[in-house]
Design a protein around this nucleic acid. Structure first.
Lengths: 138, 138
DNA sequence: ATCACATTCTCCAGTCGCTGGAGATATTAG
DNA sequence: CTAATATCTCCAGCGACTGGAGAATGTGAT
């Protein structure tokens, strides 16, 4: 049996976060020691690693909940899980696109500013005037 | 003089958000009508547009506060503003890099899954086992 | 057994950047 | 003048944690 601290070290998930996941119902309420401290099994660790991995990949808590529910039903078709992953992939791609446009704008701002004083600062002028933007960020 | 609704329409910033910016000190407390409603000048609109634009580019409220402070002092060197923009650019680039790694992993997951049942679902297996990842996302 | 120290407990509040509802008041068009 | 629309303040909630206070528990050394 693992203490919450050990579990935390092994998975890289902070202690308050583990408790938060319990509260959110992603992790089952852990068993307790005599003195009311949480004790975990290796299965709990696997589940938490799954959650951590999915969070690192940007899945929302809600999506992770769905994925965990799915994995509890091995007979069901896996199309649902695929769809969740595909949705996440699309959202990542959308974010990349958007960030690329921001990168362009910010790059233009940062490289073009050669004024010495705030009065002539290209960065501030660009922010003040959307017309100066070349691409349609947002 | 513009009402808050008009200002909102002209800038694309929602009404509660405008009030929020006032609370946060990004916008000065607006003048009021006889009946205590906010009234804005075109200068207020310019300032709000600046804020909106910066938010769209991902600057934090704190960074925007700094930029606005800077722009109030036209004699100061603009290196500070440049630095804030450069910082933001770097953070955007970092995010893009990270998202690209996620894209790779998610892409692999989504295309490789040809199992029919959850039991064989590649998506879920990948999430359960970080070893299956090819790149070091996070 | 005792002590010191580390760990964990619960509860609550704060983070960021908004967003929306309730209920009261103001303004405006017809 | 009335009805419709807009705005006011206050407060609570979102997502996903994070951290502090103060009390209780667990562990290793003497």
């Amino acid at each position: 049996m693992l203490t919450i601290g050990t579990l935390s070290r092994q998975t890289g998930v902070k202690i308050p976060t583990i408790r938060y996941y319990e509260q959110m119902g992603l992790m089952a309420a852990a068993e307790r020691s005599e003195g009311n401290q949480r004790r975990y099994t290796p299965r709990d660790r696997d589940r938490l690693s799954f959650i951590k991995h999915a969070r690192d990949l940007g899945f929302t808590i809600e999506a992770i909940r769905e994925l965990l529910d799915l994995s509890a039903h091995p007979e069901r078709p896996c199309a649902d899980a695929d769809e969740i992953a595909a949705r996440q992939l699309q959202s990542v791609r959308d974010k990349i696109l958007r960030l690329r446009m921001l990168e362009t704008e910010l790059g233009r701002m940062a490289t073009r500013c050669h004024g010495d004083h705030i009065r002539d600062c290209y960065v501030l002028q660009s922010l003040a005037n959307h017309e100066m933007c070349e691409s349609e960020h947002r």
